[in-house]
Design a protein around this nucleic acid. Sequence first.
DNA 1: AAGACGAAAGTGGTTGA
DNA 2: TCAACAACTTTCGTCTT
Length: 303
Amino acid sequence: MSETRVCPECGSSRIKFDRKSGEWVCLDCGYVFDEPAVDMGPEWRAFDSDQMEERARTGAPLKETKIRKGLTTVIDTHNRDMRGSAFSPTTKAQMYRIRKWHKRTTVSTSMERNLAVALNEIRKIGSYLNLPEGILEEAAALYRKAVEKGLIRGRLIEAVVAAVIYAICRIYGIPRTLDEIAEASGLPKKDIGRTYRFLVNELDLKVPLTNPIYYVPKFASALGLSGEVQEEAIRILQKAIEKGLLSGRGPTGVAAAAVYIAALMKGERRTQKEVAEVAGVTEVTIRNRYRELKKELNLPVNA
DNA sequence: AAGACGAAAGTGGTTGA
DNA sequence: TCAACAACTTTCGTCTT
């Protein structure tokens, strides 16, 4: 949060706070900043989920996400007043307009309710997977887009949320596998995958294919390996990418093999089983990738 | 005895007719 | 909609440390 803001559109530093809309606006080109003008976050910090629950004093109760909590009102269409006599044409027209707007505002709140449930779910999965705040914001934005396009109908909110999070993670290079998302959301992998593909199609998302390098730090730290090993593994992967060895291969398998080899080379040996465990693949896959990498890059692994 | 290796059969998902 | 297909898993026997 620096004081000297610069407009990303035109480079001007003449940024002003617009009280009406509550946003920061560039005076030269009218660019509106994304960030909320007010820090909506809590003034306290929580270091684990227990503290989070303990310290939070706002927000919806976690257990009680009942959709029908609000009362609903419907205006009838009899066009009679309380004594049963018919409305005059003027009143009738007025009532028509009232009904119209009543309906419209009700529809919009049902969307809000949908969004509220989804946001709750996003937070839940996000905290389970330790996702950064910005990613959750992006996920929420994408979900909103999906709702506006009417893509939720006939689908579980949870499934859409999981798919959205998976997509955002891939777009931003946060290494989370479909398996992890499935576990966090309690939904079968199959459903999430299907919904994910649907969203990618409908929303024209451009999702880059996962770079195995993203997984290296994750696996290495889970195995307690040094930074040197990480660097070596990344070097191996870069060479493999140059040689086009990775097409069609699962990114986790390749990353796991690279970490395994790097550990071997740096004398921090881990068994294939251990590596397979943290990577969520089998030993056999690691062996196959290992064989390919060793042969194609003729690596100096003691044999 | 544990880990590494590789062959063979099985599985779930994608693709193209 | 169905069959072919590639990647990956499971299982199991053998070899190495």
